[in-house]
Simulated scan of single mutants.
Amino acid sequence: MKLYLDTSTPETILRLDQTEYRLPLGNQLAEQLLSAIHQKLSEHQATWTDLTEITFMAGPGSFTGLRIGAAVVNTLADQLNIPLYKSTGEQVPIILPDYGRPANITPPKK
């Protein structure tokens, strides 16, 4: 089963093979992403080990959303020992998010 994930916007797009889900996870992405994927796998009578490859939309987009999504797909691909792809079709060892611009990091006050 192929997993596609896009966490670049407040509405997460999750695709399992040809079935697409739009999940309004917004600010709850970090807390709910893994359970949402698990729930959708269960609806297909599948488990984590049924995943054969992962594709991730690496950006540009939300800094936090991309960071959370990349951490999840990198971990899953590594632990399940399955191929990982960018949305461009390029196979990569790990996903590096493309934020579209430098991160807006507040400098220290002192």
Rank of each mutant, 00 (worst) to 15 (best):
L76C: 08
T75S: 13
L76R: 08
L66E: 02
M1K: 04
I37K: 00
E53M: 13
E53L: 14
L14D: 00
P102T: 07
P93E: 06
P24Y: 03
S35F: 06
I54M: 09
E43Y: 11
R15S: 10
L25Q: 01
A70T: 06
L29F: 10
V72C: 05
P102A: 11
D98Y: 08
N74K: 09
A46W: 03
A30I: 09
I13Q: 13
T55A: 08
H44V: 07
T106C: 04
A77V: 04
S87P: 01
W48S: 09
T88R: 04
W48K: 14
T9C: 06
H44A: 10
T47Y: 03
G100C: 06
I68A: 03
T106D: 01
I82T: 07
R101K: 13
R15Y: 05
P93D: 10
E31Q: 14
F63E: 00
T64G: 02
A103P: 01
I13S: 10
G69T: 04
G61D: 00
G89A: 11
I95P: 00
T64H: 10
P97C: 03
L41F: 11
Y99Q: 03
P10N: 09
S62I: 12
L3T: 02
I54A: 11
I54T: 10
S8C: 11
L84A: 13
D17A: 15
R101N: 11
T12A: 08
K109E: 06
L5Q: 02
P108A: 05
D78H: 14
P60K: 14
I82F: 05
M57C: 15
A103L: 11
L3V: 05
L84W: 04
D50W: 10
E20S: 15
I105K: 09
T106A: 09
A77L: 03
P107E: 02
G69H: 00
D78V: 13
Q18C: 12
L23T: 01
G89H: 08
I37S: 06
